[in-house]
Amino acid sequence: MANPWTGEVEIWLDGRCHSGKLTLGALAELEAGLGADSLISLAERFERRSFSARDVLAVLVAGLRGGGWQGSAEDLRHADVGGGPLGAARAAAELLARAFALPED
C-alpha cells in the first residue's frame, strides 16, 4: 500500500497494486526522457490539463521505477493500467503533485 505522506501513489497494473514515487533519481530520469525544459513546466502542463499521453507514460514509468518496479516503458505500454487512460493521467498528476508538495506544518 502506498504511503502518501512520503510521496507515494498507488498505481494498478494488470490487477496488481504498485507504489510509485518520484525520487530524485526518478525525476532526473523523467527530465532526461522527456527532454523537458524543466520539471516545473511539466507539472504546469498537468495543472493546465495540456499534457500528452507521452507525458503520462513517462511520469508513470519514472514513478514506478522510483518505487522499485523493474519494468520499462515498453512493459507499461502493454499493461492494463487501473482506471484506464484517465486513471493513468490521475496517477501521473498525483505523482507530480506529491513530488513537489511542501510538508505541512
Rank of each mutant, 00 (worst) to 15 (best):
52 S>G: 03
10 E>V: 08
23 T>R: 04
5 W>R: 14
71 G>K: 05
46 F>A: 00
86 L>P: 01
55 D>H: 14
24 L>K: 09
72 S>W: 07
6 T>G: 14
57 L>C: 03
7 G>V: 01
74 E>M: 09
20 G>D: 04
53 A>T: 13
52 S>N: 03
11 I>P: 00
95 L>H: 06
51 F>E: 11
39 L>G: 08
91 A>K: 14
76 L>G: 01
84 G>A: 05
54 R>F: 11
71 G>C: 09
31 E>P: 01
58 A>I: 10
2 A>C: 09
17 C>T: 07
83 G>L: 10
49 R>T: 08
53 A>F: 13
78 H>N: 11
62 A>F: 04
68 G>K: 09
105 D>E: 14
95 L>F: 05
69 W>A: 04
20 G>P: 04
46 F>C: 02
74 E>F: 11
64 L>M: 10
75 D>C: 11
65 R>G: 02
53 A>K: 13
36 A>W: 00
52 S>P: 01
54 R>L: 09
72 S>L: 03
61 V>E: 08
85 P>S: 00
16 R>D: 05
11 I>R: 03
52 S>M: 06
81 V>H: 07
46 F>D: 02
21 K>E: 08
28 A>M: 11
59 V>N: 03
57 L>T: 06
78 H>K: 15
75 D>Q: 10
94 E>Q: 15
90 R>E: 11
27 L>A: 09
82 G>H: 12
9 V>Y: 03
19 S>Q: 12
96 L>C: 07
43 A>D: 12
37 D>F: 13
80 D>F: 12
60 L>G: 00
103 P>F: 00
45 R>P: 00
89 A>I: 07
11 I>M: 03
